[in-house]
Nucleic acid binder design. Structure first.
Length: 202
DNA sequence: GCGCCGATTTGCT
DNA sequence: GCAAATCGGCGCG
C-alpha cells in the first residue's frame, strides 16, 4: 500500500513561505500522514482556505487579536492550529509564515488513501468531505493543537501527485466578514468528488 | 433535492 | 446573550 508511494516529507521552508495564498494552493494534492498507536492514516488534501492574518476580517487573528484560542496562530509556520467550532467540531489548520504573523490554511476536505474499510455507497456524503470530517477521519482533536508538522506522527508529504486543475471561490461560512467574505481564498481540485458541497463548485 | 434546525462550547458585546 | 471557519436529520412534496 503506502510503501509503494514515494512520500517526501515537507520541510520547514515550505511552511515559512510568507505568501499564505500560495501555500493554500500548494497544499492541494499533498498527503497528510497521521499516526497513533493503533493506525496510520493517509489523506490527500483536496480543498483548502487561506486565512491572511491581521488584515483578514474572517480570521480569528484579525487585527492581531490574541486570545487563548488564537495564540497558536502566532506560532511559527509548520504548527497545527486546531480549534473547537460550533461547540462540537474540531477544525485543522496549518500555520504558515514566521512567528508572530498569524497566517493559516484551513484543511477543508481530504480524500482517504489506502483505506479499504471505507464503503463506496453513493448516496452518503464522502469521508473527509468537510473540515470537521477531516479531523474526524484523521483522529485529530485538541491534543494536536500546537503540534509541529515536522513531527513523525503528524506531517504532510509530497508524493509527486499533481492536481489537474485548481479552482477558487469565496470562503465558506464567513459571511460576517464584510468585504473579506468575498475574497477568493478557497481553493480546491476542480471536480474532485471529495470537495465540500457548495454552489461555487459548479 | 432542498431548507430549516438543534447540538454544544468558546469568546466576544 | 448570541453568533460562530459545521454537520446530519427531518420534513416537505
Amino acid at each position: 500500500m503506502a510503501k509503494y508511494n514515494n512520500f517526501k516529507k515537507l520541510t520547514a521552508d515550505f511552511y515559512l513561505n510568507p505568501d499564505v495564498i500560495e501555500v493554500a494552493q500548494l497544499l492541494l494534492g499533498k498527503v497528510i500522514i497521521k499516526k497513533d498507536s493503533q493506525t496510520t492514516r493517509y489523506a490527500r488534501v483536496v480543498e483548502t482556505e487561506a486565512y491572511a492574518g491581521a488584515e483578514d476580517r474572517a480570521s480569528h487573528a484579525f487585527q492581531n487579536k490574541r486570545t487563548a484560542r488564537t495564540e497558536t496562530m502566532f506560532e511559527k509556520g509548520g504548527t497545527a492550529y486546531v480549534y473547537l467550532c460550533y461547540g462540537m467540531h474540531y477544525l485543522l489548520n496549518v500555520v504558515t509564515n514566521k512567528r508572530d504573523i498569524p497566517h493559516a490554511v484551513l484543511i477543508r476536505a481530504i480524500e482517504p488513501l489506502f483505506d479499504t474499510s471505507i464503503s463506496s455507497t453513493k448516496s452518503k456524503r464522502k469521508t473527509g468531505s468537510g473540515p470537521a470530517l477531516v479531523t474526524k477521519y484523521l483522529g485529530i482533536d485538541m491534543n494536536h493543537n500546537r503540534k509541529s508538522f515536522l513531527s513523525s506522527d503528524l506531517f504532510i508529504a509530497d508524493d509527486l501527485f499533481i492536481p489537474q486543475n485548481i479552482s477558487s471561490s469565496p470562503r465558506i461560512g464567513v459571511d460576517y466578514a464584510g468585504e473579506a467574505a468575498q475574497w477568493p481564498y478557497r481553493f480546491f481540485i476542480t471536480g474532485h468528488p471529495h470537495i465540500t458541497p457548495s454552489p461555487y463548485n459548479q
